[in-house]
């Protein structure tokens, strides 16, 4: 069975109109990422990799070109549909963990589940996921500020997985962690990829990129 692309960019251009002149963040980028791939996107700062991440993360739509995520063209989607897509198809892991400070670790993981299923998790999936990532029940009742960076990022990974999305998008996931914890996270991601999840990771750390099957480099808005 030939792999099906989960992300397809066709001549994707993103222009930010500014008073001082338009900034072309992405310049006719064409590429595709298959289901089950582990791809690293690299590039110096200002190269357009964040813009790229926002596009494939369905947080933004391209100015022109076609961008398909899991077969649907997001260019024509309204905010509601994009939000829906983010909820069902994507899992995010951020550099700064981005847990909701008002919620406990458990509630943070449960949050996307609630948004999707409109009810509490009664299947035990949340606790299970947390346990998988080494967060026991006692730790799960703590708020994010009371957890270490590594713990927070593990909670964030559990949160990204709670709705079982086919695609994980990671933005410098090890950027705020020490080497040892960073390595643990990368190994976790590799394990998830082996079980079939597509992972796209944006980084400027070459060591992180070594975990990936393929590296896409972006420079001046062009992919290579």
């Amino acid at each position: 069975m030939s792999p099906t692309p989960i992300i397809e960019l066709e001549e994707v251009t993103k222009i930010y109109p500014l008073a001082s002149g338009d900034v072309v963040a992405l310049d006719h980028v064409t590429l595709s990422i298959d289901e089950g791939e582990f791809v690293a996107i690299m590039g110096p700062s200002g190269s357009g990799k964040s813009t790229m991440l926002n596009q494939i993360g369905c947080l933004d739509v391209p100015t022109s070109g076609r961008l398909r995520i899991a077969g649907t063209d997001i260019g024509r989607m309204n905010d509601r549909a994009l939000t829906e897509l983010r909820l069902s198809t994507l899992g995010y892991i951020f550099q700064k963990f981005n847990l909701i400070p008002l919620l406990t670790a458990y509630e943070n993981v449960e949050y996307p589940y609630l948004m999707k299923h409109r009810r509490n998790d009664t299947t035990g999936r949340v606790s299970e996921l947390l346990a998988t990532f080494g967060i026991d029940a006692a730790l799960a009742s703590h708020r994010p500020p009371e957890l270490s960076g590594g713990q927070q990022q593990r909670v964030a990974v559990a949160r990204a997985l709670v709705n079982d999305p086919p695609l994980l998008i990671c933005d410098e996931p090890t950027g705020n962690l020490d080497t040892k914890t960073g390595t643990q996270i990368m190994e976790t991601l590799t394990g998830l990829n082996r079980r079939g999840r597509t992972i796209v990771i944006v980084t400027h750390d070459p060591t992180v990129a070594t975990y990936a099957d393929r590296t896409i480099t972006i420079r001046d808005g062009k992919a290579s």
């Binding site: 993360g57 947080l59 905010d79 509601r80 939000t83 829906e84 983010r86 909820l87 069902s88 994507l90 995010y92 981005n98 847990l99 909701i100 400070p101 008002l102 949050y111 996307p112 948004m115 999707k116 949160r159």
Partner: peptide, 15 residues
Amino acid sequence: REIGIMRSLGTQKVE
């Protein structure tokens, strides 16, 4: 920032 997180996780505007 919290609003940004919630939105990126798939929280609708109306929520």
